[in-house]
């Protein structure tokens, strides 16, 4: 079935380019992790690229993003964090966005209003409510967008955030990226028909959409942000995606049905589907896409070079940033 393209050609090309950027960056990340260059563990975003780019494009530069779930790198890229900053952080280097103190699960960029991540899944939504409260008190029309996976919605803290956001009708957009798997636990075992239904008792606007369609995500999140900006309160969106990668690199995925997995890769790959859609409508050409890929590969290569060349932190830096010192009044009477 041929789907229409509902955005202008330039925006459509940017969407494709954005998704490719995530994919190429992450493929390289996987390689570098495999070679032992990246410490810790790595979760990749395969299948979520449309949800990330659609959401990022819907947000203004001054809107907060508090990321959640496990598919993080794509969200950092979607919020505009430069690739070298992200890659150097994955490497744990001084040039990373967080000077190596955070790593893959904690990239934050306050200047770009990327709050960062609560790596204890499901704890990022109440801070997002607080970010929205701060914007309201400062009388801006900025909003806070926060993501969570299907697994995280079982945490009480997620439901508390809905209570608090509804209590003051704060400008928060909750995006649930439902990829059907909390590591190996299927979301279909959860009771709601759609996870966005969790917003219903709080009288919030709710939407459940095909999150593998970048345009659907873009339009739905844009609408929710617009509503929040204009005092219409919070929205809960379920962005239904397929997880086309292991939970983390090294997960053998013994719990997944092979045929179903192959079917999802065939049908729910946001990049491949969108690529075909744009080609069919002559919005891009094969050559155009090849150029796009070549340019992104160069960007990613430069990001890796930056990370490799960025120094390891001095061990003493472990003691930095625990406290802002002096504490209030400290040392003034000496």
């Amino acid at each position: 079935m041929t789907q229409n393209v509902s955005v202008d050609d330039e925006t459509a090309r940017q969407f494709l380019e954005g998704m490719l950027r995530i994919d190429i960056f992450e493929e390289e990340t996987k390689e570098r992790f495999g070679e032992g260059e990246i410490p810790g563990f790595v979760h990749l975003s395969g299948g979520h690229e449309g949800s990330h780019i659609g959401m990022g494009a819907a947000m203004g530069d001054d809107d907060w993003l508090a990321v959640g779930g496990a598919r993080l790198i794509g969200q950092y890229i979607a919020k505009g964090v430069p690739l070298p900053d992200i890659m150097a952080e994955l490497y744990g280097r001084v040039g990373g966005s967080n000077k190596g103190h955070g790593g893959q699960m904690h990239v934050s960029d306050i200047g770009r209003k990327l709050y960062g991540h609560a790596a204890t899944i499901g704890s990022g939504q109440n801070p997002a409510v607080g970010l929205a409260l701060a914007e309201e008190i400062q009388e801006t029309d900025n909003v806070a967008v926060t993501t969570i996976g299907d697994g995280g919605t079982s945490r009480g803290s997620f439901h508390t955030a809905l209570v608090f956001a509804a209590y003051w009708d704060l400008p928060v957009v909750f995006v649930i990226e439902n990829n059907e798997w909390a590591i190996s636990t299927p979301a279909e075992s959860l009771s709601p028909d759609h996870l966005s239904d969790y917003g219903i008792p709080h009288k919030m606007a709710t939407e459940s959409i095909d999150g593998s369609d970048v345009e659907a995500v873009y339009h739905t999140v844009s609408e929710a942000i617009e509503r929040a900006r204009n005092g219409g309160g919070p929205t809960v969106i379920e962005s239904r995606v397929a997880r086309l990668v292991p939970h983390f690199e090294g997960d053998k995925e013994t719990y997944r049905d092979t045929d179903e997995y192959e079917r999802l890769k065939e049908e729910k790959d946001p990049i491949e589907n969108y690529r075909e859609r744009l080609l069919e409508r002559d919005i891009v050409t094969e050559t155009g896409i090849e150029d796009m890929i070549a340019n992104i590969e160069t960007e990613v290569k430069e990001a890796v070079e930056f990370a490799r060349e960025s120094p390891e932190p001095e061990p003493e830096a472990a003691y930095d940033h625990v406290y802002r010192t002096p504490l209030y009044g400290q040392g003034e009477n000496q």
Binding site: Y115, N126, V129, G130, L131, E135, I137, Q138, G156
Partner: peptide
């Protein structure tokens, strides 16, 4: 606006305080 009752959840109170502080106010 300055002095607010909250619903009964310390998770909400503490989590919101963190976000509000990062967002530029002093809760």
């Amino acid at each position: 606006d300055r002095v607010r009752n909250t619903p009964l959840s310390e998770i909400g109170i503490a989590g919101m305080a963190l976000g509000a502080a990062v967002g530029g106010i002093r809760p």
